[in-house]
Amino acid sequence: MKQEQRDTYLELCIPYILGRLNPGNKKQFEVHLRTGCKECTKELAELQNSLALLPLALKQQAPPSGAKERLITKAVSGKFEQPRPEKSRVEKLRPERATRPQLSRRAPEQIEAHTATAPPAQRSWYGYAAAVAAFFIILAFGLYMNDLIKTIGKQNTQIVALQDELQRRGEVLKILQSQRIEIVFMNGLETNPAGYGKIIWDPIKKTAIFQVANLPAVPQGKDYQLWIIKNKMSISGGVFSVTSEKGGESYFKVMNLDVGEKKDFDAFTVTLEPKGGAPQPTGVMYLLGATATN
């Protein structure tokens, strides 16, 4: 055995006798001892004898009263957990076929430094640190999930709105694709001159789309209502509301449209009515569109 390797083994004797070699190096060291290394065996025996003197410096103290009796009672009764055999670290290990142990090539202090177990206080801190870290990870994950759920909710609302919008645009497109269409332009009145709108309808199918723009957002408790004026009678074409988004522009399907030709009606108008609409126009007029023929 090379001197360097011998020194490495001798240096491992102290952590070994104190039970602080990591399992891998301990196993390798014990393999080495089984080869019958006299130097290491002697070193370990001397270390054990030397360290055994340390408790002599402690103040002697008898065990609590009754401890011996408890021990003897337990021993005689045989009612005790059979202790596991504990090999003395200087136990003369049975020599076996010499093998060349592959000790780590790290320096001895590194081997010892990589001892797996941390001191009790430090292990405890590791435990606390891990618990605190786990708590914050869970908290962060919870907050993230909460945000995610809110975002998903918002996106779902947006999806519904977009689907609605898509449907309306689809209906506009359907009407525009019709063989024949009629359009009535509606203009803003004194209350809101910037407002405008169109009624686009298919006289053959008697379906119509109403497009408005630049109307103010409806106040709370109010709705806009479309009226079809026919023979000086006002027929409700449906209620709607607009928001400030997209400049108050929107499309609606016109209800109760039984007119076919332009000559069959007088005008279209939009008024602001109580929420849900009124049987007859009562509020301020915002848009008006009359047929050219009238």
Binding site: N49, P55, A75, Q82, P83, R84, P85, E86, S88, R89
Partner: peptide, 28 residues
């Protein structure tokens, strides 16, 4: 202490004379 002495009593102990003094073994 109880475990150490019960280990001897239950013959699980691996102590033999050629492993050094009884005292050193007990301390270790």
């Amino acid at each position: 202490l109880q475990e150490v002495f019960l280990q001897i009593w239950s013959k699980v102990s691996t102590y033999t004379l050629d492993r050094g003094s009884v005292y050193s073994w007990l301390v270790a």
